[in-house]
Design a protein around this nucleic acid. Structure first.
Length: 150
DNA sequence: GCCAACGTTGGC
DNA sequence: GCCAACGTTGGC
């Protein structure tokens, strides 16, 4: 069992929408490092749901991996905003997982607060210039953040 | 809206 | 294989 963090701009896909829909395909990731993290996910893994590019940014809840990595077909669809002309049926390049809604925090844990936590100083999330949209979270980081959510 | 940081592209 | 140019991310 591993822990993760998924970033999403709420205008694109919010925790509220995930709560409403129950589950979603995490399509559109176009970064190799983030894709590789998704390929290493297993059913039952948990992830923090992070709202980026909003005021304030922060962790808003938890989701759960319910399907392991498979072809992100949006890369093959010319009509999709995530279309990648280099992707083919034989070599689709990009993959995605499915996640389910797990929990929404009563209050967002703002990035500001995460940055003040000594125990979280090594998280990619709090590093300046870090843009990775899917990243691993250690068990101790996970627990530290859970404490902040109560 | 600005811009620093980063990943990717492509000329050489 | 280097690296400048470019596009994107995302905090502020």
């Amino acid at each position: 069992m591993q822990y993760w963090l998924f970033k999403s701009e709420p205008d694109t896909y919010s925790i509220e929408r995930l709560e409403r829909e129950g589950r979603t395909e995490w399509s559109g990731v176009r970064n190799y490092q983030a894709r590789n993290f998704m390929k290493s996910m297993h059913i039952g893994d948990l992830g923090f749901f992070y709202h980026s590019n909003t005021t304030p940014p922060g962790i808003v809840g938890i989701c759960r991996v319910i399907r392991e990595a498979y072809v992100d077909f949006t890369a093959l669809d010319p009509k999709s905003e995530y279309f990648d002309s280099r992707a083919t049926q034989e070599k689709p390049i990009w993959e995605m997982v499915d996640v389910a809604f797990e929990q929404r925090f009563k209050q967002m844990i703002p990035l500001d607060l995460l940055k003040t936590q000594k125990k979280l100083e090594n998280m990619p999330l709090v590093q300046k210039g870090q843009r990775l949209s899917v990243q691993p979270v250690s068990k101790s980081e996970w627990n530290t953040i859970l404490q902040l959510s109560t």
